Simulated scan of single mutants.
Amino acid sequence: MSAKILITRKLPPDVERRAETFFTIKRNKGDVPMDQARLVELADGQDGILATVTDRIDAATIERLPATIRIIANFAVGTDHVDLEAAARRNIIVTNTPDVLTDATADIALLLLLGAARGAAQGMAAIRENKWANWAPTGMLGISLTGKRLGILGMGRIGQAIAKRAQAFGMKIHYHNRRPVETVDATFHATLDELLEQSDFLSINCASTAQTRGMINARTLALLPKGAIVVNTARGDIIDDDALIGAVKNGHLAAIGLDVFNNEPNIDPGYRALPNAFLLPHLGSATLETRNAMGFRALDNLEAFFVGKPPRDRVV
């Protein structure tokens, strides 16, 4: 008898077809984010869960999961929505999907850098609202990337991919990481404060942890040079929303570009009121090729586990 797997959201057709060849599948038919009670209810009688970032699997939820659940395969790299310590206490394996979304997310980071720097939000609004009167030598002037210092907070796979792309635009790369990365042609800063002081642009690419949540706040934003630009493709909770919105309003920041937010999709309404905020709805990994690869990687981990092999991407 095949293992029984709860898939919490609708996945690309090729991924679902492959899942059906190996497992007995239970689906979230409405394809809407479930609350914890509904997740626990649907997990009854299942052997594993293929979860996504919209599933808030906290300690209380894990404690209520049926004893049959032995693995949570995460359809994402980040695992901040899963309480890993609680999973370990229940001997529930947790896996993720590294590597496969690096390029897609790095592409979005460059889109945010360009969109924020060149005033894409204002330009699009002028076209859509029929407010573009004419071309002018001083109209809609943006900021060039060439020659500017890009500070990368978190030089993992995605940070390194962003660095390579930004170097092609002539940017000078600086970064802060837990330790230097020998393969990166960039300037390492041992502290976040040092990085911020040297960053005309800041790209946030670190994981969401107890140490990084709220790291970009009023104090740290003030360390950026006046007129800096901040972009985020990591997690929304790394940023203090009030502080970031305030830094744009008071002119300390020239613009921002965000693909991730606190409390998605119920973002702080203050962002919508900023004309120089280039905002995207969490599109980092949103290509068909990438989402297929993420699903296949999650299934690789599930299939390995249920045939008695170590999952490739085990985090717990």
Results as ranks from 00 to 15, higher is better:
Thr97Ile: 03
Asp31Trp: 03
Pro98Tyr: 11
Val307Gly: 03
Thr209Ile: 06
Leu65Met: 15
Ile239Thr: 03
Gly214Pro: 08
Arg272Trp: 11
Ile204Gly: 09
Ile229Glu: 03
Gly45Val: 07
Val307His: 13
Ala59Pro: 09
Glu194Ala: 15
Asp14Gly: 10
Ile71Pro: 02
Met215Phe: 06
Thr290Pro: 07
Ala273Pro: 04
Lys309Ala: 15
Glu63Tyr: 00
Asp14Pro: 07
Leu50Cys: 08
Ala76Gly: 14
Gly139Trp: 12
Gly78Thr: 06
Met1Val: 13
Leu50Asp: 02
Pro310Phe: 03
Ile216Gly: 01
Arg312Leu: 14
Gln160Arg: 11
Gln160Met: 10
Lys10Ile: 01
Thr233Trp: 05
Trp135Asn: 13
Leu65Pro: 15
Gln122Ile: 02
Leu42Thr: 08
Pro311Asn: 14
Ile127Ser: 08
Ala3Met: 03
Thr24Phe: 04
Asn276Tyr: 10
Ala19Cys: 11
Thr287His: 04
Leu114Gly: 05
Ala37Lys: 13
Val307Ser: 07
Ile152Thr: 09
Val32Glu: 12
Ala161Asn: 11
Ala125Gln: 08
Val260Lys: 08
Ile256Ala: 04
Arg70Cys: 04
Ala133Met: 10
Arg291Asp: 00
Leu253Phe: 09
Leu274Tyr: 09
Arg213Lys: 12
Ala109His: 08
Glu289Met: 08
Ile57Cys: 09
Arg90His: 06
Asp240His: 00
Leu224His: 12
Gly48Met: 06
Thr212Gln: 08
Ala286Gly: 01
Phe22Lys: 09
Thr146Val: 07
Leu150Glu: 10
Ser2Pro: 15
Ala247Asn: 06
Leu283Gly: 01
Ala273Met: 04
Asn91Thr: 12
Thr138Val: 11
Gly214Met: 14
Asp83Arg: 10
Glu194Met: 13
Val32Tyr: 10
Ala222Gln: 06
Phe188Asn: 01
Gln36His: 11
Glu197Thr: 15
Thr287Gly: 05
Leu114Lys: 02
Val40His: 06
Glu197Arg: 15
Trp132Phe: 14
Asp241Ala: 08
Leu202Ser: 08
Gly156Asp: 00
Ala228Glu: 04
Val82Ala: 06
Asp237Cys: 10
Gly236His: 01
Leu280Trp: 04
Arg17Trp: 00
Ala234Gln: 05
Met155Gly: 10
Ala106Asn: 01
Pro311Asp: 11
Ala104Gln: 03
Trp132Leu: 14
Met155Lys: 01
Thr290His: 00
Arg149Thr: 09
Met155Tyr: 06
Ala117Ser: 14
Ile267Cys: 08
Pro265Gly: 05
Asp47Thr: 03
Arg213Ala: 15
Val32Asn: 07
Pro225Ala: 10
Arg38Lys: 14
Leu196His: 11
Lys148Arg: 15
Leu145Asp: 04
Asp47Lys: 02
Ala59Gln: 03
His282Gly: 14
Asn217Phe: 02
Ala210Trp: 07
Val316Ser: 15
Thr191Phe: 04
Gly156Lys: 04
